[in-house]
Amino acid sequence: MIEDFRIGFRDISKSFGSNRVLEQTAISIASHDCIVITGNNGAGKTTLLRIIAGLEKPGHCEISLDDASPEPWRRLRKRLLKSVMYLHQQPYMFAGSLLRNIEYAARLNPALADRESSVQKAISWAGLDGLESQSAASLSGGQKQRVALTRARLCHPQILLLDEPTANLDSESRERTLQMLREFRDSGTAIVIVTHDPGVFSDLATSKLHLQDHRIKADDIWAADVVELDSVRQSKKR
């Protein structure tokens, strides 16, 4: 189980050259949260996740842990890298077998008591038994997704960030992913999902945000159903 926590990200700004992506926006994440973020292409959703993960340097960002006084992102970056897990839209598989990929993650978590059995348990949890020696590169999209989630599970992240996790999955894999995410959430991990397809996560989500005009807005759009969201998108395009 993950202990209860709350992390506030404030004053997040980021530009790429002259192109402003995020401007003075904020997000607060607590254990057991499942936050779904929508937004147009190029709105900065991925950038936001990468800043939270400690992978992308923001122009400005302050972080407060459990209501402590805010500290600059720079100072907490190491912590973010350790306690936040970011899953790429297409999960990266290291060279070698599925087992190597999962053991790689296990080796990075010194808290794991019995590494070998933890790895086995995690593989079974993801339903990947029997695939251990298969080359990770040759796995299907759904299997790669599950390998990535298994790696994440062995790291016990406080926050799990997912970038379009269901974009290229068939319905069976999607169900499986949802089930796995639910278990993460129940164990206390906070989940932040960026998606074009919020309907998939409606059962899981605890809050819904929309990224627009460089800012995160509390979600008035969410109340409306997906059809309406589509119409919003359409009108944007025009």
Partner: peptide
Amino acid sequence: ADRAAWETARTLGANRLRAFFTVLYEIR
């Protein structure tokens, strides 16, 4: 090489040195 190799190693909690060797192995 995919930049995601470096990032995946880092987000899994590998320090810079560890991630460095991970990526080297990827491009061996």
